[in-house]
Amino acid sequence: MAALSALLVMPNIPGTDVHFLVPYAIEAPGPTFNTLGTVEGKEVVEIEGAPTDATNGKLNMTTVAVSSGITLTQAIAEGLWSSNTMVPIEQIFPQNVTPEEQREVNSADFAASEASATAAAMHYLDRPLAVEVAQVVPDGPAAEKLEQGDVIVAVDGQKISSPKQVKEAVSAHKPGQDLEVKVKRKGKETALKITLGTHPKDDAAFLGILMAQVPADGMKVTYNLKDIGGPSAGLIFSLAVVDKLDPADITGGAFVAGTGTIDEDGKVGPIGGIRHKIEASKNAGAEVFLAPKGNCADIDAKTSEGIEVAAVGSLEEAVDALSAHQRGEAMPTCG
Rank of each mutant, 00 (worst) to 15 (best):
residue 1 M to S: 12
residue 2 A to C: 02
residue 3 A to Y: 11
residue 6 A to D: 06
residue 7 L to Y: 13
residue 7 L to C: 09
residue 9 V to R: 10
residue 9 V to M: 09
residue 16 T to W: 10
residue 16 T to Q: 08
residue 17 D to C: 01
residue 20 F to E: 13
residue 38 T to H: 13
residue 41 G to D: 04
residue 44 V to H: 05
residue 45 V to P: 11
residue 53 D to L: 09
residue 55 T to H: 12
residue 56 N to T: 15
residue 59 L to H: 09
residue 60 N to S: 10
residue 60 N to T: 00
residue 66 V to F: 02
residue 66 V to M: 01
residue 68 S to N: 08
residue 71 T to W: 14
residue 71 T to K: 08
residue 74 Q to P: 00
residue 77 A to K: 13
residue 79 G to S: 15
residue 81 W to N: 15
residue 82 S to H: 14
residue 83 S to L: 08
residue 84 N to T: 12
residue 87 V to W: 05
residue 89 I to S: 14
residue 90 E to I: 01
residue 94 P to E: 07
residue 98 T to P: 15
residue 101 E to T: 11
residue 108 A to T: 14
residue 111 A to W: 03
residue 115 A to D: 14
residue 117 A to L: 05
residue 120 A to C: 10
residue 121 A to Y: 12
residue 128 P to L: 08
residue 130 A to G: 15
residue 132 E to W: 09
residue 136 V to P: 06
residue 137 V to G: 02
residue 138 P to R: 03
residue 139 D to L: 06
residue 141 P to E: 01
residue 142 A to M: 05
residue 144 E to S: 15
residue 149 G to N: 10
residue 151 V to D: 02
residue 152 I to N: 11
residue 154 A to Y: 15
residue 154 A to L: 04
residue 154 A to H: 14
residue 164 K to N: 13
residue 166 V to K: 13
residue 171 S to W: 04
residue 172 A to M: 01
residue 175 P to D: 03
residue 175 P to G: 05
residue 177 Q to I: 03
residue 178 D to H: 08
residue 179 L to Q: 07
residue 179 L to F: 10
residue 179 L to P: 09
residue 181 V to L: 09
residue 185 R to S: 11
residue 187 G to L: 08
residue 192 L to R: 04
residue 192 L to G: 02
residue 194 I to G: 04
residue 194 I to D: 02
residue 194 I to F: 05
residue 195 T to C: 07
residue 196 L to D: 00
residue 202 D to V: 01
residue 204 A to N: 13
residue 206 F to S: 09
residue 208 G to D: 08
residue 208 G to W: 10
residue 210 L to T: 09
residue 210 L to D: 15
residue 210 L to M: 02
residue 223 Y to L: 11
residue 223 Y to V: 11
residue 227 D to C: 00
residue 227 D to A: 14
residue 228 I to E: 01
residue 229 G to V: 02
residue 241 V to K: 05
residue 243 D to T: 05
residue 243 D to M: 06
residue 246 D to K: 12
residue 247 P to F: 03
residue 251 T to F: 06
residue 252 G to F: 06
residue 255 F to G: 02
residue 257 A to C: 06
residue 258 G to A: 07
residue 260 G to Y: 02
residue 263 D to W: 04
residue 264 E to N: 14
residue 266 G to A: 11
residue 266 G to Y: 06
residue 271 I to H: 08
residue 271 I to C: 11
residue 276 H to D: 12
residue 276 H to F: 09
residue 280 A to Q: 05
residue 282 K to V: 03
residue 284 A to P: 05
residue 285 G to D: 09
residue 287 E to T: 10
residue 287 E to I: 00
residue 293 K to D: 04
residue 294 G to H: 10
residue 296 C to F: 03
residue 297 A to V: 10
residue 297 A to T: 10
residue 298 D to I: 01
residue 299 I to D: 02
residue 299 I to F: 07
residue 302 K to H: 07
residue 303 T to A: 15
residue 304 S to V: 01
residue 312 V to Y: 01
residue 317 E to G: 07
residue 320 D to I: 00
residue 323 S to C: 00
residue 324 A to W: 03
residue 325 H to Q: 11
residue 325 H to S: 12
residue 331 M to F: 07
residue 332 P to Q: 02
residue 333 T to W: 00
residue 335 G to C: 03
residue 335 G to E: 14
